[in-house]
């Protein structure tokens, strides 16, 4: 009688252990799937935000900072006299529910005399 009860308890313990393992595996699988989907969505949002940011042209309205440079950095089309003026501009996008991206942009303007009319 005693041995039968012991076997029953063992079986119950085994069933409980197996079922808990199965449940936890299920739970972990579910969670990882959800995390994966969330990560993928976030990555897509990040890409979308970056793509939107990169699509912006020089007319981008959200300029968060700017400053004038003492002189323009070197470039391929060299000017031997100061005919250009350079500024750095920080641009950001602030779209709703999208990751914000910023760019540091160098703007080069011409400083040349105007033809007399």
């Amino acid at each position: 009688m005693k041995s039968d009860g012991f076997v029953l308890i063992l079986c119950l313990c085994f069933i409980a252990m197996v079922s808990s393992m199965a449940l936890s595996a299920l739970l972990i699988g579910l969670l990882s799937q959800k995390i994966g989907i969330a990560g993928q969505q976030q990555l897509q949002q990040l890409k979308l935000a970056k793509a939107l940011h990169l699509q912006q042209t020089s007319a981008y309205p959200q300029i968060t900072g700017s400053g004038e440079l003492v002189m323009c950095p070197a470039e391929l089309a060299v000017w031997s006299e100061p005919a250009t003026r350079c500024r750095w501009v920080e641009q950001s996008n602030q779209h709703e529910q999208l990751t914000a991206w910023s760019s540091l942009v160098l703007t080069t303007e011409l400083q040349l005399p105007q033809e007399a009319l």
């Binding site: 990751t99 760019s103 942009v105 160098l106 303007e109």
Partner: peptide, 12 residues
């Protein structure tokens, strides 16, 4: 002109 050249891009 003016010419715009992106020097860096980064996240907020």
């Amino acid at each position: 002109y003016p010419r715009w050249q992106r020097m860096a891009i980064y996240q907020h």
